[in-house]
Design a binder for these strands. Structure first.
Lengths: 150, 150
DNA sequence: CTAGGCTAATTACCTAAGCTAACTTTCACA
DNA sequence: TGTGAAAGTTAGCTTAGGTAATTAGCCTAG
């Protein structure tokens, strides 16, 4: 059976999606510089730690799909901000377990509530079904990312 | 009437979308480093020039929502790669008009065809209606960006 | 039970791509 | 025609990605 979605459409959609993501991500970074005190990257990592519980830096690097040195730096920053805590890994003396502390959870909750954030501001101008489309797109992007985990 | 989409949902969706975008954008950058020869940013700018025809650097900076010095650097790079051309702006001696040349159009077409690109690869594993959701999300993101143009 | 190799984390350094500030050239108009 | 604003660039800062090299801890073969 012929594919419902021929490859030309797919690569075209891929291009459009890619450009939209790149541009939106740029806008997000720019806004974060303003006020929040935490860059979009740092926020995403903090959310990841929160979701995955105590986790080693290496696991986290894999989750976020960055290299370990990059994660080392991000974690150092989150630690300096007092949002995470490390405990020695009982199973491996080379490693440690990273977890979000109270301050970090508070910060995440606050960020999640921010009505004036770039995206929240814009979402409020959309129809409910458009918001729903974006919510499902977000879930799909995460799923796509996780699928390639191996 | 009560909003179909209460603010709590909105800010929550905003958070999820934001993290998904940040992470996907990271993955895109990483892939681009590999092979394509053009970063996602440079690609997005090239596509923008192609879409908007001959355009001044300032207009382009506004379109992409970056500052002028940033655009100067990106244009310098695209020019070095031989993908764009500048002609003096007949209407303003301080400025110039930037346009994609044949090599640039060829490059864009090639990128659009790349079936092995990060997103294209993953889109092929989704249902058609999921692909459709992402396509609509891309359009929405672009629209949201343009709405704030002022 | 230890030698050698593997792995986790870090450090040092490079690059891309945002930004602001400051400078030059050109424009516009009072 | 002189002055202020605007376009583009240059210089320099920051963040966040990367690789290579180092250190410390783990594990296994002999």
């Amino acid at each position: 059976m012929a594919a419902r979605t021929p490859d030309t459409d797919l690569t075209d959609t891929a291009s459009q999606l890619r450009n939209a993501i790149v541009r939106t991500s740029r806008a997000l970074r720019q806004e974060a510089a303003g006020e929040s005190g935490l860059s979009p990257n740092q926020t995403a990592v903090l959310a990841s730690i929160n979701r995955s519980g105590p986790v080693t830096p290496s696991e986290l690097a894999d989750l976020e799909r960055v290299k370990r040195p990059t994660m080392t730096r991000t974690l150092a920053c989150l630690e300096r901000e007092g949002l995470i805590e490390r405990t020695p890994d009982p199973a491996d003396g080379r490693s440690s377990l990273v977890a979000v502390n109270d301050a970090g959870r508070e910060r995440l909750a606050r960020l999640r509530r921010r009505k004036s954030a770039y995206l929240a501001r814009r979402l409020r101008k959309l129809d409910p079904e458009e918001v729903e489309t974006l919510a499902r797109a977000a879930a799909l992007l995460e799923r796509m990312r996780e699928d390639e985990q191996g």
